[in-house]
Amino acid sequence: MAQTLTADDARQSLSAHVEAKGIEVFTLYGPQIGWSALQRLLQDRTQVRYPCEIVFDAAGLQPGEFAHPEPKGANPEDGFTMFVHPLFMTQLDQVPALVLYQLVALNYGVFASSDDAETFGAAALGLTRDEYYDQLCDLSDQLGGGGCSCGGH
């Protein structure tokens, strides 16, 4: 008799997969993922599903948003521009934390949640989710407006 998968089963499966991919990124590019390791990661199609380039420009961002991927064309294969707030141009060592959070949206689209983004980023950086969330909130706070805009926790 075939077992029917529920939405909760699918969510748990995605969460486990996202964490496993984060651990894989840590193993391949860690333990300290800096600017140059991030550039190599973005070229690795086993980890980043579609081409992605980082552009320091707030034009593609919502107020208080530190980074966001935008498609370059009608098809994901056309690649993405990862808009990162220009404030972080002078903090390149912090950019990987911001980009890792957004890579989940690029890799999994609408199926990914903020919880998945936190799980992936934390695993990729070798942090607990709480440590990663606190880091993102500290970075987000630099943009002003108070309150963490990095997702639900």
Rank of each mutant, 00 (worst) to 15 (best):
M1K: 12
M1I: 08
A2E: 12
Q3C: 03
Q3K: 08
Q3Y: 06
L5K: 08
D8A: 15
D8T: 15
D8N: 14
D8Y: 13
R11A: 14
R11F: 15
S13P: 01
S13A: 15
S15P: 05
S15N: 15
A16F: 06
V18G: 03
V18W: 06
E19L: 11
E19G: 06
A20I: 02
A20S: 11
K21H: 02
K21L: 13
E24I: 00
V25S: 05
F26C: 09
F26A: 11
T27C: 04
I33N: 05
I33P: 02
I33M: 06
G34P: 03
G34M: 05
G34E: 08
W35A: 01
W35P: 00
S36W: 04
A37Q: 15
L41H: 09
L41R: 06
R45A: 10
T46G: 12
T46D: 15
Y50I: 03
P51N: 14
P51A: 13
E53S: 09
V55T: 11
V55Y: 04
A59I: 11
G60W: 01
G60H: 02
Q62V: 02
Q62N: 10
P63Q: 06
E65L: 01
F66S: 04
F66Y: 02
A67M: 01
A67N: 01
P69M: 00
E70C: 02
E70S: 03
K72P: 04
G73S: 07
G73I: 07
N75L: 14
N75G: 03
P76G: 13
D78V: 09
D78A: 13
F80P: 09
T81K: 10
F83C: 10
V84A: 00
V84G: 01
P86R: 10
L87Q: 08
L87V: 11
F88I: 02
T90A: 08
T90D: 05
T90W: 00
Q91S: 07
L92V: 11
V95A: 07
V95G: 05
P96R: 05
L98S: 05
V99L: 00
V99G: 00
Y101C: 04
Y101T: 10
N107L: 05
Y108V: 07
V110L: 15
S114A: 13
D115I: 11
D116N: 14
A117C: 11
T119M: 02
F120N: 00
G121T: 05
A123P: 00
A123I: 00
L125H: 06
G126D: 10
G126T: 08
L127Y: 14
T128G: 12
R129N: 11
D130W: 03
D130C: 03
E131D: 15
E131P: 06
Y132M: 12
Q135R: 15
L136Q: 10
L136A: 04
C137Q: 07
D138N: 12
D138A: 13
S140V: 04
D141E: 09
D141F: 04
L143D: 11
L143W: 12
L143S: 11
G144I: 04
G147Y: 07
G147A: 14
G147Q: 11
C148Q: 02
S149P: 10
C150K: 01
G151Q: 11
G151N: 09
G151F: 07
G152H: 13
G152Y: 14
G152P: 08
